[in-house]
Write a protein that binds this DNA or RNA. Structure first.
Lengths: 332, 332
DNA sequence: GCTGACTCTGCACACGTGTGCGCCGCTCCC
DNA sequence: GGGAGCGGCGCACACGTGTGCAGAGTCAGC
């Protein structure tokens, strides 16, 4: 069932059909109506692949994630999908699963599929495929990451400021031994949140203690393990600022396994404000990222700057205080 | 940069280049090597869209989800991606966001993009787009859902048996007032899990009490609200079997807000075994679904049964007993 | 040396849609 | 009445790759 079949049925040329279906003013009123009726009745669906070949635009965007099972990435992708759909674009999902070999494979695939743009979320700085991406003549938007290069835009959260606010919150509650539970993969977000942490300590005239910095994997397991290491310290922290909510939830579990109470014995702050954050016990104090909106913004940047100069958009985080943080107890 | 440019550089016809790059035995050894070297050096990437047009196969599979932000769907998609990648297929993600209008839009898009197959996960029975799907001449696999139709395969968990085992576990612990916290969208999974619940009651000679059945939305909010309704009953349940882990986590929060303890006052069982289930407090007793494997299986079915007769694959669930369930206390 | 078989390469067309340009017929105006 | 202008339509080619078939070249066997 192609455009030619419609043409035959309507006794016109295929060009006229093509124009009629695309609402071109070049075709007469009733001819167009007749053609559209026939197309409708026969259940005709234009071939996007033929159209792509002819127009050299595919109306697809590639989305690269480290893992779609990561809730943060999933929320961002949800926003991307929404914006893409509303503009008539489709999303090709490329899950690298943090496997370097697979990273280059999926990026090669996106290149062959001639996607009109690429959004990369939660990538590691210096990942193998970044140079590959750069050589494609296609706009790229990095979410929560930056890369010095042309064709690369970014949508970021104000990491340093948000981390500063989160740690200031702990300081204001009287905490002095505040740990940082980071991520070990060298994300730019981690570096910047850590910088905010240090800045808060400095502003409060608190000493920076290297032992109070531990690295997880940004996931539940790593968060728990890193927390356990923190709890084994001779002088353990009374509060922890975590790289993200998943780490924080892991930390909550680690703390409870030791028989300690939250927030009485130790306060915990996360980052992301995943849906689950309201439902942990106790509910998690965290920094809200407008994850869906960031996804939508990424698509907007992509489609409005076909190949312009680099542009970096920063959205603010918002500290959400719940019950996992409390004033320092006198006992310590 | 096309196949013709390579042809010119190698002083051969474009046909020979096409064959050389596809490792056809029809082309001479050193000619092929020369062509491949030139292609390599010039960074040539074949156009998947032109190839698709010529071969009328796109090597893409469409994945329809109600929401990619749902952790169960995300895990399944992760498995789908993995299997697709290993077979050289790409995934087009179509997130319907439970919006009927958008459902038909995304399915139309998949149709126009000429995907080679479709996996639908967590759909609602009788969703608007199911007939649309059926009329495409493309293999379809439903995950945790079935639909009587040709071209439709399915990969399911043994819902009834698993639910039976879960509720039997509660019965064995001495519980007699066991609630079912379901889903209100009419998923087939919900119906089947509910059937397993009733069967377990029957086998244990326990009466079925309609008030003990409440419906959430399969997400955190709905789980909490439904749980609150259950706790408002004059004779409240001592155990709850939940449709899925997200509902269960919501239920945990609802129970705690009432100042009750888990599992001392009330036992909770989930379904899915999401990563988070090990990290709730207390860790959640639940039924494990091999989510990634189900995704991989779906792709396998898709690619091995281009258009054969309908085939239904069922994988078993596994009860994982953790700390959210305990023997009934004497007090009640 | 001729013939047949085999290897390698190129020609030409196909896939389905978009589009520049030319042609036809009508209308309007001088 | 003739020419200009214009609306409506078709011709032909383009997009980049795959492939059936024919033809050119080589080699071995008789």
């Amino acid at each position: 069932m192609t455009i030619k079949d419609i043409a035959r049925a309507a006794s016109v040329s295929h060009s006229t059909v093509s124009r009629a279906l695309r609402d071109s003013p070049m075709v007469g009123r009733e001819t167009a109506d007749r053609i559209r009726r026939i197309a409708q009745e026969s259940g005709y669906r234009a071939s996007a692949v033929a159209r792509s070949l002819a127009t050299s635009r595919t109306r697809t965007i590639g989305v690269v994630v480290t893992s779609i099972a990561d809730p943060f990435a999933a929320e961002v992708v949800s926003g991307i999908e929404e914006a893409a759909d509303s503009q008539g674009y489709s999303v090709i999902l490329a899950d690298s699963n943090a496997d370097p070999e697979r990273e280059v494979r999926v990026v090669t695939a996106l290149q062959e599929r001639r996607v009109d743009g690429i959004v990369v979320t939660s990538s590691r700085v210096g990942a193998l495929y970044v140079p590959l991406l750069a050589q494609m003549r296609v706009p790229i938007v990095l979410v929560n990451n930056q890369h010095p290069s042309e064709f690369v835009h970014s949508v970021m959260i104000g990491n340093r400021e948000a981390a500063l606010a989160a740690v200031n919150h702990l300081v204001a509650l009287g905490h002095r031994r505040i740990a940082y539970l980071g991520d070990r993969f060298g994300h730019q977000s981690d570096t910047e949140r850590f910088a905010g942490y240090r800045e808060a300590l400095e502003q409060a005239d608190l000493p920076f203690t290297p032992e109070l910095v531990m690295h997880g994997d940004g996931k539940l397991e790593g968060g728990e393990q890193a927390m356990c290491r923190l709890l084994s310290l001779a002088a353990r922290p009374t509060a922890v600022f975590c790289y993200n909510d998943m780490s924080a939830v892991g930390a909550l579990a680690g703390i409870r396994t030791r028989g300690l109470r939250i927030p009485e014995d130790i306060s915990v702050v996360g980052f992301d404000d995943l849906p689950i954050a309201r439902y942990t016990w106790p509910p998690l104090t965290t920094v809200r990222q407008p994850k869906r909106q960031m996804g939508r913004l990424a698509v907007e940047r992509l489609l409005s700057h076909p190949t312009g100069i680099e542009e970096n958009t920063t959205v603010p985080g918002e500290l959400i205080v719940r019950a996992s943080t409390a004033p320092l107890m006198e006992s310590t």
